[in-house]
């Protein structure tokens, strides 16, 4: 079956992230992202989704670092790559959109200039050429009157507009992989859909693979072809999106699905915090068991390093 699949853009194998040997946050996560595919990582806060994304970008903050496993991106071994070469990949071949559009942009620089910087760094353009390209990039994310907006400062734009700017910036150099870490969590529900649609449209048009990190199952369901479910630093289930929603196999996934708020459901106990749900075991009791990875081929024990 493998021989008909194209080479993955990103291949994560038994990824471990922690602080030296003392603290482990991610305990051996493995997944592949194929070219043009949108892969969702879903899980509770603190399940290790974000640090997984940051580790791919090489942006883990000390003292956090990758302590084991392998990260391959377009033929580059990201664990052995020189920091300088990793930096050249960032923004150019792999890009990231963060959760907080309000603080993710430099407050003292016009947004056009901040987008233009991408072309200056990665394409060696001069500023005037780069700024013209930045206006085009703003146009592509459907920012109205882009030429005028390019001169605006972040504080003059709404949260939704800023996130569009972030998307324009991330996709400026037509990367092979976009990591979107909760890209719409901080936005109004009314603008969430617009931003997600934008990411989907642009990435489909350019064949950009997307790693979508979210705790919002609705977002995941609409955007992703495949989903990985993370729980306490482990990937516990990986399935095609449709299959996952129709037939979740891992108890954690079932809990996650049951924890979704449903319109009109007011009965207490019908939905609630994950740990309060019947099929879930209380946090303290979960402490020692190792979650098992459930695949369509049946459960298997999590690989230990």
């Amino acid at each position: 079956m493998n021989d008909i699949l194209p080479d993955p853009v990103l291949s994560v194998r038994d990824l471990q992230i922690g602080i030296g040997n003392k603290l482990k946050i991610v305990h051996g996560v493995s997944f592949d992202i194929l070219p043009g595919e949108t892969y969702g990582l879903v899980g509770e806060s603190g399940s290790g989704k974000s640090v997984t994304g940051l580790s791919i970008m090489g942006l883990l903050k000390r003292p956090l670092n990758v302590t084991g496993g392998a990260l391959h991106f377009l033929g580059h071994d990201l664990r052995r790559i020189r920091p300088r070469d990793h930096r050249r990949l960032r923004g150019d071949r792999m890009a990231m959109v963060f959760q907080e559009p309000m603080t993710a942009l430099n407050p003292l620089a016009p947004i056009g200039r901040q987008i233009a910087e991408m072309f200056v760094i990665h394409r060696g353009m001069d500023w005037s050429e780069a700024k013209a390209k930045a206006v085009e990039a703003l146009e592509s994310v459907r920012v109205p009157s882009p030429e005028e907006r390019a001169r605006a400062y972040p504080h003059q734009l709404s949260g939704g507009m800023r996130q569009r700017v972030m998307v324009a910036m991330a996709l400026a150099c037509r990367p092979d992989l976009l990591i979107a870490d909760e890209p719409t969590t901080a936005l109004d529900v009314t603008v969430q859909a617009g931003v997600l649609e934008l990411i989907a449209d642009l990435c489909t048009a350019e064949g950009t693979a997307v790693l979508l990190i979210s705790h919002d199952l609705g977002v995941i369901a609409n955007m992703c072809q495949r989903v990985g479910v993370m729980d306490r630093g482990r990937l516990v289930e990986e399935q095609d999106t449709k299959a996952l929603f129709e037939n979740p196999m891992h108890p954690y996934t079932r809990g996650l699905l049951a924890a979704r708020p449903r319109l009109g459901s007011r009965v207490p106990g019908e939905r609630g915090r994950l740990i309060e749900l019947e099929q879930m075991v209380a946090d303290e009791d979960r402490g020692h068991d190792v979650p098992t990875l459930v695949t369509p081929r049946g459960p298997r024990k999590e690989v230990t390093a």
């Binding site: 970008m57 942006l59 930096r87 960032r90 890009a95 963060f98 430099n106």
Partner: peptide, 20 residues
Amino acid sequence: DFVRTGRAKGVSEPRLVRAH
């Protein structure tokens, strides 16, 4: 956060300090 954005853009550290 915007400094992290700068790093994610591939801005080098000296340039990041200077420009942002």
